[in-house]
Each structure stands twice: as structure tokens, then as C-alpha cells.
Nucleic acid binder design. Structure first.
Lengths: 155, 155
DNA sequence: TATTGTTATACTCTATAACTATA
DNA sequence: TATAGTTATAGAGTATAACAATA
């Protein structure tokens, strides 16, 4: 080992300057989103629900009887990718597809009783997690500001 | 077709109510991030740079001579995934690995002249894209607020 | 023994094309 | 001919384990 490194600014000693990237909105959005999803995963581990699965069950709960394509499109999920997602939820007995008499091409989605129970638990876990985020943001006003700014960004 | 559907609130007529999910920070973060990355992709199509590739080249440009592991860790990229990423950049002649005499295990990273030229173009494209985002956010003050809120969220 | 870079691998998410059954 | 759901598949992004060279 070179003892001179203690007196020179060798590459190993210098820390990485990421100040430019830290100012980039997209980069910071990505890092924050990954972090929040990681936290979500910890809070929802017992319920065995991933973010997309929770959003689907939540949406079916507040919109019973909608077609697959309606729920999928509302969440920005391609209908082809939606199929295996709800296959898993249906296999777990959390929701069901029902054929529609008036248009036998489409399937209406409903929560099962088991699904309703899980969604209630998940909504509770989500409320607690959200409260945790609000504290870190500095209050509900800061949270509202963040949602407003994200809204303006589009998407 | 059943003409009665014009008088009843059938599932096909109702739109999906996503108001609950719209209040969820993680969900809104995800949607906004996907949208911004999609916009980024359009702005950077000519340069053939994906977000991760731009961040790597930018960081090497401002931190020449750092080890692979330093750049990778700073961006939250696992060193195993960093290898194929910079393989592509090196194959395109945008950067090079250099063996370090003082520690022959590590590779120091540098931009090539071609890489420096591309990074300058990319920084320009990024500045324009960022300005576009700032306009949508409602000014630089709103941008600073957003970055501050994302900072508080952690990650 | 520990670290750096590498390879192999697997799992998730996302995107597209083509099929089926219905309309 | 068009639509809803499905299947197959391919491409990214991400995660872990194990290895070679070096410290």
C-alpha cells in the first residue's frame, strides 16, 4: 500500500460529485420513486401485495363490475400484461371475472369477500405508510404541494 | 345492441373512479416518473442515450478517473449490472476503462474525446428538456420546491 | 480473507404481434 | 371489420451467487 495516498488526492480518496445529476428532475423522481416502492414493499410484505396488485384490487373495490380493459387502461397497464396479473389475484381467491350477458367478449371484475377483507387491510396499511411519508415531507400541506407539482408534470 | 343501455348506467358507460389512487404518493410518483422518462426518451432518441447511460457518462465527465464501483454505487446501480452497461458505452467509443497501477483490481473510467462531445450535446438536450419541465411546473421556484420535497422523501 | 470486476442466471416489468371468440 | 381477452415472446431493469485476479 502506498503511504503517499494519505497526502495526495488519489482517485480512491475523492468522493463522487453527483451535484449535476442531483439537479435533474427525472433522476430525482426516479430515485425517490424507487425508494418509496422499496418502503412500500416492506410495509406490504405480510399482505403479499405488490404495488400494481394493490392498485388493481383497490380500483376493483371502488369500481366493481368494470371490464378488464377499463381497469387496466386506467392504471396504464397494457391489457396483455393485465391478464397474468389478475390471473394471480383470481387464483388467490381475491377477485373474480364474470362474463357479461350483454357483451360476451368482456369480463366484469369483482372482489370476492376474501378480497374485500384484504383490501381493507391493505387500505389501512397504505394509510399508515402514507402518514409516514407525510411526516417526512413535513405535513399535509407539503404533501398536497408534492401531488400538485406531480400533477403539473403530467402523466 | 340493447337500446336500453342509453338509459341505464351500465358498466360500459361509467368511467373508472381512480380518485383514491390519485391521492397515493407512491402511485403518483410512479406515473410522473414514467411520463418524464418517456419524454426523456423522445428528447434523447437522436443521441441514442437511455437515462442510465446519460447519468453514467455525465458522472464520468465530472468525475474522471473514478473506479467502476464508485460510479455505479453513486447511481444506485449494482456492479454486476454496471458491467454490460459500460461495455456498450465503451464499444461505442464514448468512454474507456484504464487499469490502475496502484491497484490492478480496479478500472478507472474516462470519457473519450468522442464521449466528451456527446456529453456536451446531451447536457444541452438535458438543459432544454429541464427547461420544458420547469415551465410545466410553473417556474424555477416550483422546481426547487419539487426537488426539496423529493429530497425529504428520501432515497 | 476481503475487494474489484466479471459471468451466469433469474425474476419482474413492459411492449408487440397474432390468435379466439364475439360483436 | 372491429373489439375484448388471451397467448407467446422479446427486451429492459434489477437481484443474487460464484468465480478470477489482486490486495
Amino acid at each position: 500500500m502506498n503511504t503517499l495516498k494519505h497526502f495526495s488526492a488519489s482517485a480512491d480518496d475523492r468522493s463522487v460529485d453527483a451535484s449535476t445529476m442531483e439537479q435533474v428532475i427525472g433522476y430525482r423522481l426516479r430515485r425517490a420513486q424507487l425508494y418509496v416502492f422499496q418502503q412500500f414493499h416492506q410495509h406490504f410484505a405480510e399482505l403479499e401485495l405488490r404495488p400494481a396488485e394493490y392498485s388493481v384490487l383497490n380500483l376493483i373495490g371502488t369500481n366493481p363490475g368494470r371490464k378488464q380493459s377499463q381497469i387496466a387502461e386506467s392504471l396504464g397497464i397494457k391489457r396483455a400484461n393485465f391478464v397474468p396479473l389478475i390471473n394471480g389475484l383470481e387464483r388467490r381467491g381475491l377477485m373474480i371475472r364474470r362474463s357479461q350477458p350483454d357483451d360476451r367478449r368482456s369480463h366484469a371484475l369483482f372482489l370476492t369477500t376474501k378480497g374485500e377483507v384484504l383490501v381493507k387491510q391493505a387500505d389501512q396499511a397504505q394509510a399508515e405508510f402514507e402518514a409516514h411519508c407525510v411526516v417526512r415531507l413535513g405535513g399535509t400541506k407539503a404533501r398536497d404541494q408534492l401531488l400538485e407539482l406531480l400533477e403539473r408534470l403530467g402523466g
